Simulated assay, not measured.
Amino acid sequence: IVMARADKFGLAQLHQLRGRVGRSHHQAYAYLLVPDMESLTKQAAQRLEAIQQMEELGSGFYLAMHDLEIRGAGEVLGESQSGNMMEVGFQLYNEMLAEAVRSLKAGREPDLLAPLSVTTDINLHAPALLPNDYCGDVHLRLSFYKKLATAKTADQVDTLLEEIVDRFGKLPPQAQNLIDVHRLRVLSQPYGVIKVDAAPGVIHITFKPNPPVEPMRIIELIQKNRHIKLAGNEKLRIEKALPEVKDRVQMVRDVLRALGQPLTMTEAVPA
């Protein structure tokens, strides 16, 4: 196949046309003709260089990535896009879009003024990270941090834990704390918990207004445990010396589970 003025074609077009040849036992060739290499635009030269380099099986994905780098992400993130996309960011935009789609599928009008779900703040008063000497690749560490932060269920956290241990070995204490932080985050969110501050001497569990928890459960919990008190309308105070991180984590788990199953959205609406 001979492609005249190949510099005028897009990268996807060049890849598709080149794929038309070499499909049998006969030797086949694709010739890309340009008038003058020196007169090519920067983007045209990048496209031709990319198509020449990508010859292996599965190169289509890498060509798509090159195309994204050369042309950009299009009008979703472009300056011509209406709204405040540049200020919002691509990931937050996707989250907002997914929330609107979920609402429509559930038969509800999307509440565009309602904030997105707030991530529960967990503070164990101990280092919670993947140490450099455990996972030396900074890009891998950032990747795992992002995956853990976006995990929605305990099973997803456990799957990531298995992957980390399989790749790097037994968890050091700091990494175990990191896993415990995200396990607590996943456990706490359905109860309407917005913050857990677990210090060695006292633990505070702060709920959002009108949390999806049966009020009688909270009263029973306080009556049965002298070390648990109400600190305001939306905060539980647990006064107990727990120097070990694992013991503080277990205490928070026990308190939340003692509150029973979180109420559904309908049950949680105040009268």
Results as ranks from 00 to 15, higher is better:
V186K: 05
L142Q: 15
Q91S: 14
D166Y: 13
L92W: 00
E95H: 07
I222C: 13
R185I: 02
V118L: 13
D247Q: 14
I164H: 07
Q13V: 03
A6P: 00
Q46N: 03
I122F: 09
A4N: 08
A45R: 15
Y145G: 08
K235R: 15
G107P: 09
A126W: 06
F61G: 03
K152I: 08
Q156T: 05
I51V: 15
I194H: 06
R18Y: 04
H139W: 02
H26A: 12
E56G: 05
Q174T: 09
I179T: 05
R167W: 08
I205H: 02
L161D: 13
L178I: 14
E163N: 05
E214A: 03
P115Y: 06
V252N: 00
V249W: 04
S80L: 13
R23H: 10
L130F: 10
A114F: 06
N132F: 09
D67H: 12
T119M: 14
G89R: 02
E95P: 03
I203T: 15
Q223N: 12
I219N: 09
D133S: 10
V88N: 04
I1D: 00
E109Q: 13
E214K: 13
L242W: 03
M216W: 01
P209Y: 01
A44C: 09
L142T: 13
L130P: 08
Q223K: 15
Y145D: 14
T206F: 02
M251G: 02
V21E: 03
N94V: 09
H26F: 06
A154T: 05
R248N: 01
V181F: 05
R23N: 05
R102I: 02
G169Y: 09
M96H: 12
L104I: 15
M96W: 12
G260S: 09
G201M: 06
N94M: 13
P115I: 06
P173H: 03
T120H: 06
E163Q: 14
T119G: 11
L57Q: 11
P35W: 01
E75P: 00
